[in-house]
Design a protein around this nucleic acid. Structure first.
Lengths: 156, 156
DNA sequence: TATTGTTATACTCTATAACTATA
DNA sequence: TATAGTTATAGAGTATAACAATA
């Protein structure tokens, strides 16, 4: 059993009650594909997903150091440094040396950065709203509940 | 209304019956956060997301041409060609010229590929399975239904 | 002439290692 | 000596343009 060779038996069993492994696999594939599609909807085509994520986080939580941003986005410090360099060059963030610890540099959203992250969220949601409008109210309830559940998983 | 400036009124209204805009925003944030967390749980470091996705799709739907795979994964044909080259080099897929249209090449999962995608999915989803196991059966049904709905949106 | 697959080339994002300055 | 940020360099993934084979 469960050797992966007896496809027919596996399919028959899962048709009745999908195992936790298949539920997980289905959910993973669906979410990853959906998020990739969602990410494709951007206000500024020249901005990467990582750059947008940093701007969004700064708007939500205020200024952070480079290390904090790197840890938050789960990338290396040099990688985040490159991201921040671009954002600074475009005028979307500002770098300010910390007063108490001069090794640190506080990275904050500029007015232009605030504008662009707002516009990006608006465009992204416009596409998503159009998609949601084609669902039934019951289906939208399902998605709303699922959103809460996904958030709970992500916070583990 | 709905200008985005009257935050209090908007919040009050959405508390009763969330508008489509807030549903979209909530769903977007939840999915992006979840997918980032999910991506961080990569048990198999030697294979990329794209490679795993192709193997999974071939296992699920059988052989496909290069163009079909590229369209499915929303990448360019050269990019998919590179992905398929790696998978072929590793012995996970086979290329077979089509009999009726000799321009086409059928890409199919090999036995080794079938094994590795099974094992990869198992390792990768271990974290997600653990998370799902803490939900009630009803909540898991909600997530399963939502997965189908998200897939429909992504295919738009 | 259009389509399918492939190669050539370049760009972006990412990582590790090494360097600078502060603590 | 340790930490925060940065620079140098390399690897992986992606894209567009150009090419070969077939329809």
């Amino acid at each position: 059993m469960s050797t992966g060779t007896d496809v027919a038996a596996s399919a028959a069993a899962s048709a009745a009650t999908p195992g936790l492994d298949e539920q997980a696999s289905n959910l993973r594939m669906a979410v990853l594909r959906f998020s990739r599609r969602l990410r494709a909807e951007r206000a500024v085509d020249t901005m990467s997903d990582g750059q947008i994520a940093v701007l969004g986080w700064l708007r939500l939580k205020g200024p952070h150091t480079l290390s904090e941003l790197a840890e938050r986005e789960r990338v290396s410090a040099p990688s985040m440094n490159r991201t921040v360099n671009c954002l600074e060059e475009w005028g979307y963030i500002t770098r300010t040396p910390d007063d108490t610890d001069r090794r640190k540099v506080n990275i904050a959203l500029s007015d232009a950065g605030r504008d662009v992250v707002t516009e990006t969220a608006r465009l992204r949601d416009a596409w998503l709203e159009a998609a949601l409008s084609e669902f039934t109210p019951a289906e939208r309830v399902t998605l709303a509940q699922a959103a809460g559940l996904l958030a709970r998983i992500a916070d583990r």
